[in-house]
Design a protein around this nucleic acid. Structure first.
Lengths: 264, 264
DNA sequence: CGGGTACTTGATTATCGTCAACAATCGTGG
DNA sequence: CCACGATTGTTGACGATAATCAAGTACCCG
């Protein structure tokens, strides 16, 4: 039994849901008859597979999902984790096929919306185009943040920054930001952050010993949020100052064209 | 003198240009009267600044541009480099302000197109929505690739993969893939790849010594492309096999719903 | 030609990965 | 309810890769 005809009204994620937004934008009423496909996946099951031809985006309704990329040598890297209410799968739009695989990390309900459908409806309601672009842009922001996290951050900084990011996302969903359960195991955290499992274990142990958090298995309690925050990126590497320097010396050479009307 | 009224016809980048695509899509004719703003920037000059409120995308017409993120401690990280024909600035759409700064790496001509304009025109021609989404999705693919490059890759693998990526991008622009000039200095490469300048220098020296490429200053010549390719990611770390394993054991538990109709 | 930036090379150190062994937890079935 | 095996997590010893510190060379631009 496909759940396509089920109402989105009862969906706990409707306030995050792009389909709901679309429906509201198009009709001004509450969500109904969205062309979508709902399914339940068990732990370890794929939602889509790398190089599968399709383009759709997906919304996590419950559970959690990880996006994994496998390279030519078979090495896997976890690009990201998705929590209830979050949208994933935008990376498939470019080639019309997915550059990575999506895997349910626990029993999860996922809602699938084809891109073509979004595009069609978007053209009917211009405001919605902006919502679409914003959603994708948000994803771009997130991945850039990940790239930054992986560059020059030490193991401890990566882990703290990762945990604080999770915490923030739980807070965004009106859940506790200080006490939650990690949806992934240590191996996945290590893989995602480019570290060895042992390092993750050790660093978590050290942070716990410092009294900034408690972690038992996947149960996490943040005890000293501000101190954790202050620990990430305390000038780990040489501070390079291209922006200020170069601008200082070069601003005088400004081409007149650059100054002309900012409006257009 | 604003160049807004200048024709896009003479632009060498029109075949890469989103504005040109838009114009064609909307009118079926060649590029004209695109609402855009062209400007020349000197080396080190900012095209947009972190947290500046604006949302537009930009096309490199000549020269090259780097996107730099500055964190709370003042540490800078280069997110990406953009070559002629490439589009940047999508990350600003999410918040309506830029999470990073764009800096010209040499005398560069850059074309600016406001997002609102793209959105308006896109609603007039539905096909163009897809082009827009594809462009952003491509950017997402690129940044994910960067994240992968930064995770678990050794210094040598990062550098080779970075150079081969550049090479490919030059090839895409009908320029030589084997002989080109790096638009950035070693410090920028190091920053971008999360390495120390000395490491970049040493690794480049080593690769050169192996006879796979020649590099003098910024002039690069790839001598053995296939061997370089084979050097990236030769199983640097333990091969983790969640996908196959978990799927093998769990596929039997498949919820019937997951198998129902792939079409919708 | 001189000054500054960019790049290279060497010596030393530290972080983190690897290998190895062990402990805790979970899920399943008797 | 407990026992079992399997998965997951922890801890220690050791080594390798790359960062840091330091010095020196090449290059570019005025």
């Amino acid at each position: 039994m496909s759940i396509e005809r089920s109402s989105c009204k009862e969906c706990h994620q409707s306030h995050h849901c792009i389909a709901a937004k679309l429906s509201e934008a198009v009709r001004g009423n509450k969500v109904k008859d969205i062309s979508r496909h709902e399914a339940i996946y068990v732990r370890g099951q794929r939602i889509f597979s790398q190089s599968a031809c399709s383009s759709a985006c997906y919304i996590v309704k419950s559970g959690s999902v990880k996006i994994v990329n496998v390279d030519a040598q078979g090495n896997e890297r976890i690009i990201g984790f998705y929590l209830p209410g979050e949208v994933f799968g935008w990376e498939g739009v470019f080639r019309g096929s997915f550059p990575s695989t999506a895997i349910a990390m626990e029993r999860s309900m996922v809602c699938k919306i084809p891109i073509e459908y979004l595009e069609q409806r978007a053209s009917a309601k211009p405001d919605f185009i902006h919502s679409l672009l914003k959603l994708m842009s948000r994803e771009l922001n997130n991945v850039e943040q990940l790239a930054i996290r992986l560059t020059r951050y030490t193991a401890e900084e990566r882990i703290i920054s990762f945990l604080l990011d999770l915490s923030q996302r739980y807070a965004d969903r009106k859940l506790s930001a200080l006490y939650f359960r990690l949806p992934m195991n240590r191996t996945d955290i290590a893989n995602h952050l480019g570290l060895a499992v042992e390092t993750v274990s050790r660093v978590l142990g050290r942070i716990q010993h410092d009294g900034d958090l408690t972690i038992r298995g996947r149960e996490l309690k943040i005890l000293n949020h501000s101190r954790l925050l202050s620990k990430i990126s305390v000038a780990p590497n040489t501070e390079i100052r291209y922006i200020s320097e170069e601008n200082k010396t070069k601003v005088l050479e400004l081409d007149p064209k650059c100054l002309s009307g900012t409006s257009f």
